[in-house]
Design a protein around this nucleic acid. Structure first.
Lengths: 238, 238
DNA sequence: ACAACAAATGAGCCGTACTTATTTATTTTT
DNA sequence: AAAAATAAATAAGTACGGCTCATTTGTTGT
Protein backbone atom coordinates (compact mmCIF):
# COMPACT_ATOMS: atom_id res chain seq x y z
CA UNK A 1 0.00 0.00 0.00
CA UNK A 2 2.14 2.84 -1.21
CA UNK A 3 -0.59 5.43 -0.98
CA UNK A 4 -0.55 7.24 2.33
CA UNK A 5 -4.08 8.44 1.71
CA UNK A 6 -5.47 4.94 1.38
CA UNK A 7 -3.55 3.75 4.40
CA UNK A 8 -5.15 6.48 6.40
CA UNK A 9 -8.59 5.46 5.12
CA UNK A 10 -8.53 2.07 6.74
CA UNK A 11 -8.03 3.56 10.20
CA UNK A 12 -11.05 5.84 10.47
CA UNK A 13 -14.61 4.67 10.93
CA UNK A 14 -16.05 7.22 8.56
CA UNK A 15 -14.97 10.30 6.63
CA UNK A 16 -16.40 13.74 6.12
CA UNK A 17 -17.51 14.11 2.52
CA UNK A 18 -20.19 16.71 2.64
CA UNK A 19 -20.71 17.35 -1.07
CA UNK A 20 -20.33 13.77 -2.24
CA UNK A 21 -23.01 12.33 0.03
CA UNK A 22 -26.05 13.79 -1.64
CA UNK A 23 -25.41 12.53 -5.20
CA UNK A 24 -24.28 9.18 -3.82
CA UNK A 25 -27.44 8.75 -1.80
CA UNK A 26 -29.50 9.88 -4.77
CA UNK A 27 -27.84 7.29 -7.01
CA UNK A 28 -28.21 4.55 -4.43
CA UNK A 29 -31.84 5.47 -3.91
CA UNK A 30 -32.59 5.23 -7.59
CA UNK A 31 -31.01 1.79 -7.85
CA UNK A 32 -32.77 0.38 -4.81
CA UNK A 33 -36.10 1.97 -5.73
CA UNK A 34 -35.91 0.60 -9.24
CA UNK A 35 -35.18 -2.84 -7.87
CA UNK A 36 -37.93 -3.01 -5.29
CA UNK A 37 -40.47 -0.27 -5.88
CA UNK A 38 -41.25 2.36 -3.29
CA UNK A 39 -43.44 0.23 -1.06
CA UNK A 40 -40.75 -2.42 -0.66
CA UNK A 41 -37.88 -0.01 -0.18
CA UNK A 42 -36.95 1.26 3.25
CA UNK A 43 -34.76 4.24 3.89
CA UNK A 44 -32.46 1.84 5.74
CA UNK A 45 -31.95 -0.13 2.52
CA UNK A 46 -31.03 3.02 0.63
CA UNK A 47 -28.67 4.09 3.39
CA UNK A 48 -26.98 0.69 3.36
CA UNK A 49 -26.53 0.80 -0.42
CA UNK A 50 -25.07 4.29 -0.18
CA UNK A 51 -22.75 3.16 2.61
CA UNK A 52 -24.04 5.64 5.16
CA UNK A 53 -26.21 5.46 8.22
CA UNK A 54 -29.93 5.99 8.02
CA UNK A 55 -29.67 9.22 9.99
CA UNK A 56 -27.27 10.63 7.41
CA UNK A 57 -29.90 10.25 4.73
CA UNK A 58 -32.17 12.46 6.81
CA UNK A 59 -29.41 15.06 7.03
CA UNK A 60 -29.56 15.51 3.27
CA UNK A 61 -33.23 14.83 2.55
CA UNK A 62 -36.28 16.02 4.44
CA UNK A 63 -38.05 12.68 4.30
CA UNK A 64 -38.57 9.63 2.16
CA UNK A 65 -40.94 11.39 -0.22
CA UNK A 66 -38.52 14.25 -0.73
CA UNK A 67 -35.83 11.72 -1.57
CA UNK A 68 -38.07 10.00 -4.10
CA UNK A 69 -39.10 13.28 -5.71
CA UNK A 70 -35.49 14.32 -6.08
CA UNK A 71 -34.63 10.99 -7.67
CA UNK A 72 -37.35 11.65 -10.22
CA UNK A 73 -36.20 15.22 -10.85
CA UNK A 74 -32.61 14.05 -11.31
CA UNK A 75 -33.82 11.50 -13.82
CA UNK A 76 -36.25 13.74 -15.71
CA UNK A 77 -34.15 16.87 -16.02
CA UNK A 78 -31.55 15.66 -18.56
CA UNK A 79 -34.34 13.85 -20.42
CA UNK A 80 -36.29 17.07 -20.87
CA UNK A 81 -33.21 19.14 -21.66
CA UNK A 82 -32.14 16.80 -24.43
CA UNK A 83 -35.63 16.82 -25.89
CA UNK A 84 -35.81 20.62 -25.79
CA UNK A 85 -32.68 20.75 -27.91
CA UNK A 86 -33.65 17.95 -30.28
CA UNK A 87 -37.09 19.28 -31.04
CA UNK A 88 -35.52 22.25 -32.82
CA UNK A 89 -33.68 19.94 -35.21
CA UNK A 90 -36.89 18.44 -36.59
CA UNK A 91 -39.20 20.39 -38.82
CA UNK A 92 -42.89 19.73 -39.25
CA UNK A 93 -45.46 19.16 -36.54
CA UNK A 94 -45.81 15.46 -37.32
CA UNK A 95 -42.11 14.83 -36.93
CA UNK A 96 -41.84 16.87 -33.77
CA UNK A 97 -44.74 15.13 -32.07
CA UNK A 98 -43.44 11.78 -33.26
CA UNK A 99 -40.08 12.59 -31.71
CA UNK A 100 -41.70 13.38 -28.38
CA UNK A 101 -43.73 10.19 -28.59
CA UNK A 102 -40.69 8.07 -29.45
CA UNK A 103 -38.58 9.56 -26.68
CA UNK A 104 -41.34 9.07 -24.17
CA UNK A 105 -42.05 5.47 -25.08
CA UNK A 106 -38.32 4.70 -25.31
CA UNK A 107 -37.89 6.09 -21.83
CA UNK A 108 -40.65 3.83 -20.60
CA UNK A 109 -39.10 0.88 -22.36
CA UNK A 110 -35.58 1.50 -21.10
CA UNK A 111 -36.33 2.61 -17.55
CA UNK A 112 -39.73 1.14 -16.78
CA UNK A 113 -39.03 1.07 -13.06
CA UNK A 114 -38.51 4.81 -12.92
CA UNK A 115 -41.81 5.35 -14.68
CA UNK A 116 -43.45 3.08 -12.18
CA UNK A 117 -42.29 5.44 -9.49
CA UNK A 118 -44.08 8.23 -11.31
CA UNK A 119 -47.39 6.45 -11.69
CA UNK A 120 -47.61 4.20 -8.70
CA UNK A 121 -46.38 6.37 -5.99
CA UNK A 122 -46.42 10.00 -6.92
CA UNK A 123 -47.77 11.89 -3.94
CA UNK A 124 -49.77 14.96 -4.82
CA UNK A 125 -49.82 16.56 -1.40
CA UNK A 126 -47.09 19.12 -1.97
CA UNK A 127 -46.68 18.49 -5.66
CA UNK A 128 -47.82 21.73 -7.22
CA UNK A 129 -45.01 24.24 -7.46
CA UNK A 130 -42.44 21.63 -6.52
CA UNK A 131 -39.32 21.06 -8.65
CA UNK A 132 -40.86 17.83 -9.86
CA UNK A 133 -43.96 19.66 -11.00
CA UNK A 134 -41.81 22.23 -12.77
CA UNK A 135 -39.79 19.76 -14.75
CA UNK A 136 -42.96 17.92 -15.73
CA UNK A 137 -44.41 21.21 -16.94
CA UNK A 138 -41.32 21.91 -19.00
CA UNK A 139 -41.80 18.57 -20.69
CA UNK A 140 -45.47 19.10 -21.39
CA UNK A 141 -44.80 22.64 -22.62
CA UNK A 142 -42.69 21.26 -25.42
CA UNK A 143 -45.81 19.72 -26.89
CA UNK A 144 -48.01 22.72 -26.20
CA UNK A 145 -45.64 25.05 -28.06
CA UNK A 146 -45.55 22.75 -31.05
CA UNK A 147 -49.35 22.79 -31.20
CA UNK A 148 -49.53 26.56 -30.68
CA UNK A 149 -47.06 27.22 -33.46
CA UNK A 150 -49.03 24.90 -35.70
CA UNK A 151 -52.19 26.87 -35.06
CA UNK A 152 -50.42 30.18 -35.65
CA UNK A 153 -48.89 28.98 -38.91
CA UNK A 154 -52.32 27.87 -40.11
CA UNK A 155 -51.32 24.25 -40.38
CA UNK A 156 -53.66 23.22 -37.58
CA UNK A 157 -57.31 24.08 -37.10
CA UNK A 158 -57.65 27.40 -35.28
CA UNK A 159 -60.34 26.26 -32.86
CA UNK A 160 -58.55 23.33 -31.24
CA UNK A 161 -57.39 23.57 -27.65
CA UNK A 162 -53.62 23.00 -27.39
CA UNK A 163 -53.99 21.75 -23.83
CA UNK A 164 -56.60 19.17 -24.80
CA UNK A 165 -54.39 18.01 -27.64
CA UNK A 166 -51.47 17.68 -25.25
CA UNK A 167 -53.69 15.72 -22.89
CA UNK A 168 -54.71 13.38 -25.68
CA UNK A 169 -51.13 12.77 -26.70
CA UNK A 170 -49.81 12.13 -23.21
CA UNK A 171 -52.87 10.17 -22.31
CA UNK A 172 -52.37 7.86 -25.24
CA UNK A 173 -48.66 7.57 -24.54
CA UNK A 174 -49.20 6.77 -20.90
CA UNK A 175 -51.75 4.10 -21.64
CA UNK A 176 -49.56 2.51 -24.28
CA UNK A 177 -46.55 2.68 -22.04
CA UNK A 178 -48.31 1.38 -18.97
CA UNK A 179 -49.33 -1.73 -20.80
CA UNK A 180 -45.63 -2.34 -21.28
CA UNK A 181 -44.53 -1.28 -17.83
CA UNK A 182 -47.05 -3.21 -15.85
CA UNK A 183 -48.20 -6.02 -18.10
CA UNK A 184 -44.73 -6.46 -19.54
CA UNK A 185 -46.01 -6.55 -23.10
CA UNK A 186 -43.35 -5.94 -25.78
CA UNK A 187 -43.49 -2.55 -27.43
CA UNK A 188 -42.67 -1.47 -30.99
CA UNK A 189 -41.84 2.11 -30.11
CA UNK A 190 -41.57 3.68 -33.56
CA UNK A 191 -44.67 1.94 -34.82
CA UNK A 192 -46.85 2.83 -31.84
CA UNK A 193 -45.55 6.38 -31.71
CA UNK A 194 -46.22 7.17 -35.36
CA UNK A 195 -49.58 5.42 -35.26
CA UNK A 196 -50.67 7.47 -32.30
CA UNK A 197 -49.39 10.76 -33.66
CA UNK A 198 -50.88 10.29 -37.09
CA UNK A 199 -54.24 9.47 -35.61
CA UNK A 200 -54.16 12.55 -33.40
CA UNK A 201 -52.95 14.73 -36.24
CA UNK A 202 -55.86 13.58 -38.36
CA UNK A 203 -58.15 15.27 -35.89
CA UNK A 204 -56.43 18.63 -35.76
CA UNK A 205 -54.93 19.18 -39.23
CA UNK A 206 -56.59 21.92 -41.19
CA UNK A 207 -56.47 20.30 -44.63
CA UNK A 208 -58.33 17.06 -44.04
CA UNK A 209 -58.27 14.44 -46.77
CA UNK A 210 -59.40 10.82 -47.09
CA UNK A 211 -56.25 9.53 -45.42
CA UNK A 212 -56.54 11.71 -42.38
CA UNK A 213 -55.23 14.97 -43.73
CA UNK A 214 -52.07 16.26 -45.29
CA UNK A 215 -49.78 14.91 -47.95
CA UNK A 216 -48.82 11.43 -46.86
CA UNK A 217 -45.32 11.80 -48.37
CA UNK A 218 -44.73 14.95 -46.37
CA UNK A 219 -45.88 13.23 -43.23
CA UNK A 220 -43.66 10.27 -43.88
CA UNK A 221 -40.66 12.53 -44.42
CA UNK A 222 -41.25 14.23 -41.11
CA UNK A 223 -41.39 10.97 -39.24
CA UNK A 224 -38.31 9.62 -41.02
CA UNK A 225 -36.45 12.74 -40.01
CA UNK A 226 -37.25 12.19 -36.35
CA UNK A 227 -36.31 8.55 -36.62
CA UNK A 228 -32.95 9.46 -38.12
CA UNK A 229 -32.32 11.79 -35.22
CA UNK A 230 -32.98 8.97 -32.83
CA UNK A 231 -30.75 6.54 -34.75
CA UNK A 232 -27.84 9.00 -34.82
CA UNK A 233 -28.21 9.51 -31.11
CA UNK A 234 -28.11 5.80 -30.43
CA UNK A 235 -25.02 5.39 -32.62
CA UNK A 236 -23.28 8.26 -30.89
CA UNK A 237 -23.85 6.90 -27.40
CA UNK A 238 -21.84 3.71 -27.72
CA UNK B 1 -88.22 -0.05 25.61
CA UNK B 2 -90.97 -2.41 24.58
CA UNK B 3 -88.81 -4.44 22.26
CA UNK B 4 -87.34 -7.45 23.96
CA UNK B 5 -84.72 -7.71 21.20
CA UNK B 6 -83.38 -4.25 21.85
CA UNK B 7 -83.36 -4.78 25.59
CA UNK B 8 -81.21 -7.81 25.04
CA UNK B 9 -78.81 -5.78 22.92
CA UNK B 10 -77.70 -3.52 25.74
CA UNK B 11 -76.51 -6.44 27.83
CA UNK B 12 -73.98 -8.08 25.52
CA UNK B 13 -70.56 -6.70 24.67
CA UNK B 14 -70.84 -7.54 21.00
CA UNK B 15 -73.10 -9.50 18.68
CA UNK B 16 -72.54 -12.03 15.97
CA UNK B 17 -73.47 -10.48 12.64
CA UNK B 18 -71.44 -12.40 10.13
CA UNK B 19 -73.00 -11.16 6.90
CA UNK B 20 -73.47 -7.55 7.94
CA UNK B 21 -69.86 -6.96 8.89
CA UNK B 22 -68.31 -7.00 5.45
CA UNK B 23 -70.52 -4.37 3.80
CA UNK B 24 -70.34 -2.23 6.93
CA UNK B 25 -66.56 -2.31 6.97
CA UNK B 26 -66.50 -1.63 3.25
CA UNK B 27 -68.73 1.41 3.67
CA UNK B 28 -66.73 2.69 6.62
CA UNK B 29 -63.50 2.17 4.71
CA UNK B 30 -64.74 4.19 1.78
CA UNK B 31 -65.77 7.09 4.01
CA UNK B 32 -62.52 7.20 5.94
CA UNK B 33 -60.38 6.70 2.85
CA UNK B 34 -62.19 9.49 1.03
CA UNK B 35 -61.65 11.76 4.01
CA UNK B 36 -57.96 11.15 4.53
CA UNK B 37 -56.46 9.39 1.54
CA UNK B 38 -54.80 6.01 1.79
CA UNK B 39 -51.52 7.19 3.26
CA UNK B 40 -53.25 8.90 6.17
CA UNK B 41 -55.75 6.15 6.85
CA UNK B 42 -54.93 3.33 9.24
CA UNK B 43 -56.84 0.10 9.44
CA UNK B 44 -57.53 1.01 13.05
CA UNK B 45 -59.37 4.14 11.90
CA UNK B 46 -61.53 2.12 9.54
CA UNK B 47 -62.25 -0.43 12.25
CA UNK B 48 -63.26 2.31 14.67
CA UNK B 49 -65.59 3.87 12.11
CA UNK B 50 -67.17 0.50 11.42
CA UNK B 51 -67.57 -0.13 15.13
CA UNK B 52 -65.46 -3.28 15.18
CA UNK B 53 -62.02 -4.20 16.37
CA UNK B 54 -59.05 -4.03 14.06
CA UNK B 55 -58.68 -7.80 14.11
CA UNK B 56 -62.21 -8.20 12.83
CA UNK B 57 -61.30 -6.26 9.72
CA UNK B 58 -58.59 -8.81 9.05
CA UNK B 59 -61.16 -11.59 9.41
CA UNK B 60 -63.03 -10.25 6.39
CA UNK B 61 -60.18 -8.79 4.33
CA UNK B 62 -56.78 -10.25 3.57
CA UNK B 63 -54.91 -7.02 4.11
CA UNK B 64 -55.18 -3.27 3.71
CA UNK B 65 -54.63 -3.37 -0.05
CA UNK B 66 -57.33 -6.00 -0.49
CA UNK B 67 -59.72 -3.79 1.45
CA UNK B 68 -58.89 -0.79 -0.72
CA UNK B 69 -59.29 -2.77 -3.93
CA UNK B 70 -62.66 -4.03 -2.83
CA UNK B 71 -63.77 -0.51 -1.99
CA UNK B 72 -62.87 0.47 -5.52
CA UNK B 73 -64.66 -2.53 -7.03
CA UNK B 74 -67.78 -1.80 -4.98
CA UNK B 75 -67.71 1.74 -6.22
CA UNK B 76 -66.92 1.00 -9.88
CA UNK B 77 -69.30 -1.91 -10.47
CA UNK B 78 -72.63 -0.05 -10.42
CA UNK B 79 -71.01 2.79 -12.35
CA UNK B 80 -70.01 0.45 -15.16
CA UNK B 81 -73.31 -1.43 -15.10
CA UNK B 82 -75.33 1.75 -15.47
CA UNK B 83 -73.14 2.88 -18.34
CA UNK B 84 -73.44 -0.47 -20.09
CA UNK B 85 -77.21 -0.07 -20.08
CA UNK B 86 -77.25 3.61 -20.99
CA UNK B 87 -74.91 3.28 -23.93
CA UNK B 88 -77.56 1.26 -25.75
CA UNK B 89 -80.06 4.11 -25.47
CA UNK B 90 -77.87 6.52 -27.43
CA UNK B 91 -77.32 6.16 -31.14
CA UNK B 92 -74.35 7.47 -33.02
CA UNK B 93 -70.70 7.11 -32.16
CA UNK B 94 -70.33 10.73 -31.22
CA UNK B 95 -73.15 10.59 -28.73
CA UNK B 96 -72.00 7.33 -27.24
CA UNK B 97 -68.44 8.50 -26.71
CA UNK B 98 -69.71 11.78 -25.35
CA UNK B 99 -71.84 9.88 -22.87
CA UNK B 100 -68.85 7.91 -21.68
CA UNK B 101 -66.81 11.08 -21.40
CA UNK B 102 -69.54 12.89 -19.48
CA UNK B 103 -70.08 10.03 -17.07
CA UNK B 104 -66.37 9.69 -16.46
CA UNK B 105 -65.78 13.37 -15.82
CA UNK B 106 -68.93 13.62 -13.70
CA UNK B 107 -67.67 10.74 -11.63
CA UNK B 108 -64.41 12.56 -11.11
CA UNK B 109 -66.22 15.72 -10.22
CA UNK B 110 -68.64 14.10 -7.80
CA UNK B 111 -66.33 11.60 -6.11
CA UNK B 112 -62.86 13.03 -6.63
CA UNK B 113 -61.53 11.28 -3.55
CA UNK B 114 -62.39 7.87 -4.91
CA UNK B 115 -60.57 8.67 -8.13
CA UNK B 116 -57.59 9.74 -6.11
CA UNK B 117 -57.50 6.27 -4.67
CA UNK B 118 -57.30 4.93 -8.19
CA UNK B 119 -54.48 7.13 -9.36
CA UNK B 120 -52.44 7.80 -6.28
CA UNK B 121 -52.36 4.48 -4.68
CA UNK B 122 -53.29 1.71 -7.05
CA UNK B 123 -50.86 -1.12 -6.47
CA UNK B 124 -50.04 -3.15 -9.54
CA UNK B 125 -48.44 -6.11 -7.84
CA UNK B 126 -51.36 -8.48 -8.06
CA UNK B 127 -53.55 -6.29 -10.21
CA UNK B 128 -53.84 -8.26 -13.43
CA UNK B 129 -56.67 -10.74 -13.30
CA UNK B 130 -58.00 -9.24 -10.08
CA UNK B 131 -61.66 -8.22 -9.76
CA UNK B 132 -60.55 -4.60 -9.92
CA UNK B 133 -58.78 -5.26 -13.19
CA UNK B 134 -61.84 -6.99 -14.55
CA UNK B 135 -64.26 -4.19 -13.80
CA UNK B 136 -61.84 -1.69 -15.29
CA UNK B 137 -61.67 -3.81 -18.43
CA UNK B 138 -65.44 -3.93 -18.65
CA UNK B 139 -65.48 -0.16 -18.58
CA UNK B 140 -62.81 0.21 -21.22
CA UNK B 141 -64.48 -2.42 -23.39
CA UNK B 142 -67.56 -0.23 -23.69
CA UNK B 143 -65.47 2.24 -25.65
CA UNK B 144 -63.66 -0.41 -27.66
CA UNK B 145 -66.95 -1.94 -28.85
CA UNK B 146 -68.26 1.45 -29.91
CA UNK B 147 -65.14 2.00 -31.99
CA UNK B 148 -65.23 -1.51 -33.45
CA UNK B 149 -68.85 -1.16 -34.49
CA UNK B 150 -68.05 2.19 -36.04
CA UNK B 151 -65.32 0.61 -38.12
CA UNK B 152 -67.57 -2.27 -39.17
CA UNK B 153 -70.38 0.07 -40.15
CA UNK B 154 -67.97 2.07 -42.28
CA UNK B 155 -68.47 5.25 -40.30
CA UNK B 156 -64.89 5.20 -39.00
CA UNK B 157 -61.69 4.72 -40.97
CA UNK B 158 -60.92 1.03 -41.37
CA UNK B 159 -57.23 1.30 -40.50
CA UNK B 160 -57.50 2.86 -37.05
CA UNK B 161 -56.64 0.85 -33.97
CA UNK B 162 -59.59 0.69 -31.56
CA UNK B 163 -57.26 0.22 -28.60
CA UNK B 164 -55.22 3.28 -29.47
CA UNK B 165 -58.40 5.28 -29.83
CA UNK B 166 -59.58 4.06 -26.47
CA UNK B 167 -56.21 5.01 -24.99
CA UNK B 168 -56.47 8.48 -26.46
CA UNK B 169 -59.93 9.00 -25.05
CA UNK B 170 -59.16 7.76 -21.55
CA UNK B 171 -55.83 9.50 -21.58
CA UNK B 172 -57.47 12.80 -22.39
CA UNK B 173 -60.20 12.22 -19.83
CA UNK B 174 -57.74 11.33 -17.11
CA UNK B 175 -55.61 14.36 -17.75
CA UNK B 176 -58.62 16.67 -17.77
CA UNK B 177 -60.02 15.06 -14.67
CA UNK B 178 -56.76 15.03 -12.77
CA UNK B 179 -56.41 18.76 -13.16
CA UNK B 180 -59.71 19.00 -11.34
CA UNK B 181 -58.99 16.32 -8.76
CA UNK B 182 -55.58 17.47 -7.73
CA UNK B 183 -55.38 21.11 -8.66
CA UNK B 184 -58.99 21.68 -7.69
CA UNK B 185 -59.77 23.55 -10.90
CA UNK B 186 -63.48 23.86 -11.74
CA UNK B 187 -64.67 21.69 -14.58
CA UNK B 188 -67.35 22.26 -17.20
CA UNK B 189 -68.10 18.59 -17.79
CA UNK B 190 -70.32 18.77 -20.86
CA UNK B 191 -68.14 21.32 -22.58
CA UNK B 192 -64.87 19.47 -21.96
CA UNK B 193 -66.39 16.12 -22.83
CA UNK B 194 -67.83 17.17 -26.17
CA UNK B 195 -64.69 19.16 -27.03
CA UNK B 196 -62.51 16.14 -26.42
CA UNK B 197 -64.76 13.71 -28.24
CA UNK B 198 -65.23 15.91 -31.29
CA UNK B 199 -61.50 16.44 -31.57
CA UNK B 200 -60.84 12.71 -31.36
CA UNK B 201 -63.64 11.90 -33.77
CA UNK B 202 -62.14 14.30 -36.28
CA UNK B 203 -59.15 12.01 -36.47
CA UNK B 204 -61.01 8.78 -37.02
CA UNK B 205 -64.14 9.66 -39.00
CA UNK B 206 -64.15 8.40 -42.53
CA UNK B 207 -65.81 11.37 -44.22
CA UNK B 208 -63.49 14.18 -43.29
CA UNK B 209 -64.58 17.72 -43.99
CA UNK B 210 -63.27 21.19 -43.14
CA UNK B 211 -64.93 21.13 -39.71
CA UNK B 212 -63.41 17.84 -38.68
CA UNK B 213 -65.67 15.43 -40.50
CA UNK B 214 -69.33 14.53 -40.54
CA UNK B 215 -72.47 16.58 -40.67
CA UNK B 216 -72.24 19.03 -37.81
CA UNK B 217 -76.03 18.90 -37.25
CA UNK B 218 -75.89 15.11 -36.94
CA UNK B 219 -73.04 15.38 -34.46
CA UNK B 220 -74.87 17.99 -32.44
CA UNK B 221 -77.98 15.83 -32.30
CA UNK B 222 -75.99 12.90 -30.99
CA UNK B 223 -74.46 14.93 -28.22
CA UNK B 224 -77.80 16.48 -27.30
CA UNK B 225 -79.26 13.00 -27.01
CA UNK B 226 -76.59 11.93 -24.55
CA UNK B 227 -77.04 15.12 -22.56
CA UNK B 228 -80.78 14.53 -22.33
CA UNK B 229 -80.09 11.07 -20.97
CA UNK B 230 -77.90 12.56 -18.30
CA UNK B 231 -80.46 15.22 -17.40
CA UNK B 232 -83.26 12.68 -17.06
CA UNK B 233 -81.06 10.61 -14.82
CA UNK B 234 -80.31 13.53 -12.56
CA UNK B 235 -84.00 14.43 -12.34
CA UNK B 236 -84.92 10.86 -11.51
CA UNK B 237 -82.44 10.56 -8.66
CA UNK B 238 -83.91 13.18 -6.37
C1' DA C 1 -1.66 20.70 20.66
C1' DC C 2 -6.08 22.09 21.30
C1' DA C 3 -10.50 24.30 20.85
C1' DA C 4 -14.44 24.79 18.02
C1' DC C 5 -17.17 22.87 14.64
C1' DA C 6 -20.10 20.08 12.13
C1' DA C 7 -20.48 15.42 9.71
C1' DA C 8 -21.97 11.12 10.89
C1' DT C 9 -23.89 7.93 13.73
C1' DG C 10 -26.31 4.45 17.29
C1' DA C 11 -29.93 3.88 19.87
C1' DG C 12 -34.43 4.54 20.46
C1' DC C 13 -39.43 6.58 19.88
C1' DC C 14 -43.73 6.20 17.64
C1' DG C 15 -47.13 4.67 14.64
C1' DT C 16 -49.11 1.08 11.89
C1' DA C 17 -49.81 -3.38 9.31
C1' DC C 18 -50.66 -7.73 10.69
C1' DT C 19 -50.89 -12.15 14.20
C1' DT C 20 -51.98 -14.81 18.25
C1' DA C 21 -54.09 -16.71 22.06
C1' DT C 22 -58.28 -15.95 24.35
C1' DT C 23 -62.98 -14.63 25.31
C1' DT C 24 -67.80 -14.92 24.49
C1' DA C 25 -72.14 -15.02 21.74
C1' DT C 26 -74.62 -18.41 19.33
C1' DT C 27 -75.87 -23.04 17.72
C1' DT C 28 -76.16 -27.90 18.21
C1' DT C 29 -76.61 -31.96 20.80
C1' DT C 30 -78.60 -34.84 24.01
C1' DA D 1 -82.96 -27.02 29.41
C1' DA D 2 -78.21 -27.66 30.29
C1' DA D 3 -73.87 -28.80 28.35
C1' DA D 4 -70.80 -29.27 24.54
C1' DA D 5 -69.25 -27.56 20.23
C1' DT D 6 -68.53 -23.85 17.18
C1' DA D 7 -67.04 -19.74 15.31
C1' DA D 8 -67.41 -14.48 15.66
C1' DA D 9 -65.02 -11.04 17.80
C1' DT D 10 -61.48 -9.24 20.41
C1' DA D 11 -57.29 -7.62 23.43
C1' DA D 12 -52.78 -7.85 23.55
C1' DG D 13 -48.77 -8.20 21.28
C1' DT D 14 -45.00 -8.60 17.37
C1' DA D 15 -42.33 -6.71 13.77
C1' DC D 16 -40.86 -3.24 11.12
C1' DG D 17 -40.39 1.25 8.97
C1' DG D 18 -40.17 6.37 9.17
C1' DC D 19 -38.08 9.62 11.67
C1' DT D 20 -35.40 12.02 15.84
C1' DC D 21 -31.84 13.18 19.17
C1' DA D 22 -28.00 12.85 22.14
C1' DT D 23 -23.45 11.62 21.41
C1' DT D 24 -19.30 10.42 18.99
C1' DT D 25 -15.61 11.52 16.02
C1' DG D 26 -13.27 13.27 11.88
C1' DT D 27 -11.84 17.92 10.37
C1' DT D 28 -10.35 22.72 10.52
C1' DG D 29 -8.49 26.95 12.20
C1' DT D 30 -5.48 29.04 15.79
Amino acid sequence: MPSSKNAKTSKVAWRRRKDQREPEILAAARVVLEENGIANTSVAMIAARAGVSEATVYKYFDNKQDLINRVLVAWATPFVEVLEREIKLVKGIGGQLTLVAIRYLRGMQQTPRVHRLYYQELKWENYFGSPLHQINRRFSNIVVSVIRKGIDSGELKPDIDPLVTRDILFGGLEHIGQRTIFAGRPLDVEREASKLVSQILGGIRRTAGPDGGGDSITRLNEIISSLQLLRNDILKNR
